[in-house]
Amino acid sequence: MTTNAHVLPPKQAAAAENTLASAKPAGRSDRTGLGTPFIVIGCVLLVAICLFPFWWMSLSSIKTLRELYTVPPIWWPAAPTWGNYHKVLFESNIPRYFLNSVIISVGATGLALCLAVFASYGFARFNFKGKPLFQAFVLVGQLLPTAAIIVPLFVTLRVLGLVNTYFGLILVYMIITLPLSVWMLTSYFKAIPVELDEAAIIDGASRVGVLFRITLPLSKPGIVAVVVYSFVTTWNEFIFALCFASDSSVKTLPIGLAEFSTEFNTDWGAVMAASVIMTLPIALLFLSMQRLFVGGLTAGATKG
């Protein structure tokens, strides 16, 4: 999933979320609508298009080799098998790549969050010279064609000895996760009344104390959104991982999967099983947080 988002002040996010979630905008009844046949056909088509590949992937992952390679294709396997999963989990490098992916995604998400919390607080609560310029610079990262900087990044990482290390990839992932994290958190922090900060400072709290005891606890939804976004993006990231982590000790899941499927003799059952394994964590995370995440994402759209 490549995502980018316009995440805007929580007030609007909440408004958009409400309209999306409750799905009952006022005045719906007194307006012309699409005919029922159109709606039914449209929905059936939409659901089929969206779900079929997913279903076919799951189905193929529990077929035996013989059932995979038959014409016409078998719609329901006579003898569903876990053999493909067994192969992926015990006879391939996929578990190792899974672990690498977890370490790198968690690391990149955590580091981006730490840096973004401070930067966002700085942008949200202080006025200083050059602030618009710095904010624009942070956003540029989001618009950069990443392919154009892989060469110098690689050379730099090589000089620093960070090629094929967890930390090298985590650092590089800041390009993707940090700008949006800063942007999202800044708008959340701005929505928190500044009077709370002032009161705490009068009571003797330090700036950092205010940030950790007042601002952060009040912006939990924003932090969750940032964490989900960063984790999903880094989990799915391909091109940087391809260039900077070529050793199997640090290779991530997407690269492992790509190798799996382009070798001369592709074992499609195993590839599909590995695909399911890779999709599950992200699908669960995303669907459980969907309301919050889509709410934040679409707030930008309503603003136009």
Binding site: M1, T2, P53, F54, W56, M57, W235, N236, F238, P254, L257, A258, F260, S261, V271, M272, S275, M278, T279, I282
Partner: peptide
């Protein structure tokens, strides 16, 4: 993930 869409 894009890579899963690609392989599927």
């Amino acid at each position: 993930p894009s890579i899963v869409a690609a392989t599927t």
